[in-house]
Simulated assay, not measured.
Amino acid sequence: ATVGANTFIGRGTEIGASTQVYPNATIHHNCQIGKCCTLHSGTIIGDDGFGFAEHRHGWKKIPQIGRVVIGNHVDIGSNTTVDRGALGDTVIEDNVIIDNLVQIAHNVRIGANTAMAGCSAVAGSTIIGRNCRIAGGVRISGHLTIADDVFLTAASVVYRSIKKPGSYSSGVPLEETRFWRRNYNRIKQLDKIAKRLFEIEKNK
């Protein structure tokens, strides 16, 4: 492996042959990184996951004792964070490519050959299948399962599991503000309109 200047590598971490770690990356303890990977500057691997329990005096930190396990031929962009697992491991399988400024939370698993574009985020314990394409700015909630061969279009918000391959989108497309305001006001009236239609149908 080749390691750039000012990079920190924690105790017990293993890095495979022909892996390139660029300057100013951080790889915490007991992580496992495969062969022929690229970790760009500012990447943080194996930081603590966001694990806290609420109690009467505020928040109590839950120890994050899992690892990060990264397969072979994985490319991770600058300033991306991959958190270590809470109990099990956070896993990135072979041939995954991840852009800059991506957040991978604890206990996430990303299947082989999946691509994630910049500013995406995956909450804890979500499983993403193989050969998925996740466009920029996508947000995926925790404890979900995403099937293989799923394409998520830019800025989509995923709040339920996806069981079938295909392309999925969410959100309201961009338009002139005056039209957006008018349409948004109509959306707020949909529940009232639906109730009126229900009453009309019921009284026929």
Rank of each mutant, 00 (worst) to 15 (best):
I140A: 08
N30F: 06
G129P: 13
N95W: 07
S125I: 03
E199L: 13
Y168R: 13
T114R: 11
G66W: 07
G142H: 01
V3T: 06
P165N: 01
I33C: 09
D191T: 04
A147V: 05
H106L: 10
V158G: 00
L144M: 01
H29F: 14
S41P: 03
K60A: 15
T126C: 08
R139V: 04
I9D: 04
I187F: 10
I187G: 00
K202R: 13
H29V: 01
T38M: 13
H55L: 01
L144K: 08
T114Q: 08
A1K: 03
S125N: 03
E199D: 06
V172I: 14
R133F: 09
V102N: 03
I65F: 07
H28A: 08
Y184L: 13
L174W: 10
F179S: 04
V3N: 02
R130E: 08
I134S: 10
R160Y: 00
A17S: 08
I70Y: 06
T7K: 14
A17R: 11
D47Y: 12
D149E: 09
K60C: 06
A17Q: 14
I200Q: 15
K163P: 00
W180S: 01
A17V: 05
L197W: 03
N203S: 14
N6L: 06
V108Y: 00
S167N: 11
R67L: 04
L144W: 02
Q32A: 10
V172F: 05
P63Y: 15
I9V: 09
R139D: 02
A25D: 10
G10D: 10
A25R: 06
A123Y: 05
S141A: 15
G137R: 13
E14H: 06
C37T: 08
E54I: 03
S170Y: 10
G136V: 07
G124S: 12
I110F: 10
G171I: 05
S169L: 12
A121M: 11
D191Y: 05
Q189N: 08
C37M: 08
A135E: 09
Y168F: 11
G85I: 03
A155T: 06
D89H: 06
L190I: 09
A25S: 14
G124T: 02
C119H: 13
G129W: 14
I76T: 12
R178L: 05
L190C: 05
N79L: 09
A123Q: 11
S120N: 14
L174E: 12
I76H: 11
A194T: 01
P165C: 03
V157R: 13
K60S: 12
H73Y: 11
P23Q: 06
H106Y: 08
L152C: 00
H57Q: 11
K195L: 11
R181M: 02
V68E: 00
T177A: 15
V108A: 08
V172H: 02
G10S: 04
A86R: 15
C36F: 10
F52L: 15
V82P: 00
I127G: 01
V150I: 05
I110W: 07
D99Q: 03
G111Y: 01
R182W: 04
G137A: 11
I128K: 09
N185H: 14
G71F: 04
R56M: 05
F151I: 14
N183E: 12
E54Y: 07
R186V: 04
I62N: 11
D149G: 00
V157P: 01
